[in-house]
Amino acid sequence: MNLVVYILRRLAISIPILFIGSFLVFCMVAAAGDPLGELRTQPGVSQEAIDQLSRQLGLDQGIVPRYFDWLGGFLTGDWGISIAQGSNMQPVFPKVMSAFEVTIQLILAAEIIAVLLGVAVGVLAAVKQYSPIDYIATTMAFIFFSMPIFCVAIVLKMYGIDLNVMITDMGWDSWLGNPFLKTTSPESLSGDGFFDSIINYIGGLLLPTLSIMFISFAAYSRFQRSSMLETMSMDYVRTAQAKGISQGRVIMRHAFRNALIPVTTLFSVNFVTVVTGAIITERVFAWNGMGSVLVEAVNKNDPNTLMGWIVVIAISVVIANLIADLVYGILDPRIRVG
């Protein structure tokens, strides 16, 4: 019960921030220019049609009533229409949501692998400090941490294409599919039958997931390493060792769990970075996720889509922070919520 109250209270605190934030962004979007500018210069578009669209977008009103119109619609699931050319006045809600689904799918797979692998490598590097494992892990983390995510994606795409050629040369494409590793957006991730579906799923997601994973992995492993080193120097760890408990048990039962606590904060700090990374990775692999929606919306000056996009990401940031805090509470009984 306390937990529910805590969650509700946390969400309630973020509502004013979301409110002010969305208003500021709304003003920014409005300042970005006339969304119908392109339409106005086109021949054959009647003035009535433009006026009607202008009314529909609320452009004839001031910024404040327009914002509250938008907010009212937003809260009831009517996020307005997209005016980008070729979108045929498509409603924004399904457009942004289906793109978000694509992006979240990428992020989830990548983050799960990154956390597990990063924590494992970080612990290993800390326990075997200054060993070859530590040096390799540190070097790799530094390189990936310093690499722009699109470069990782581009290099992976390049090797992916080479690998596909190799697979075809070996004649494995008959069962792995041709191309096995999709370097552009896969039409569908399912296949005929169980085996085919798995192959398709892996082939379709592998390269973009790896791109996002590597960058996150670097952060998690560095963070886990330093946190683990710090925990291993604590008095209670020495006490446990002095009592004759085996080193493996000391590491797992006494140090590891406590060393995980700071890492959960990284999850929330990292979340925006990962979303940004996913957007850029999608561009390299030509996926139709949040990345392409954003680029199109900015270039076409499409206010409703931009607002929907930004608020969806902002809300997911709030939720990610909440999840991190809840996990924090589970790991550290001293600050258990409620």
């Binding site: 920014m28 979007v29 220019g33 900015v298």
Partner: peptide, 14 residues
């Protein structure tokens, strides 16, 4: 909480 990449892109547009 404001996604910086989108905000920056809009501001560059402004």
């Amino acid at each position: 909480i404001v996604p910086s990449i989108a905000a920056a892109a809009i501001m560059v547009r402004v």
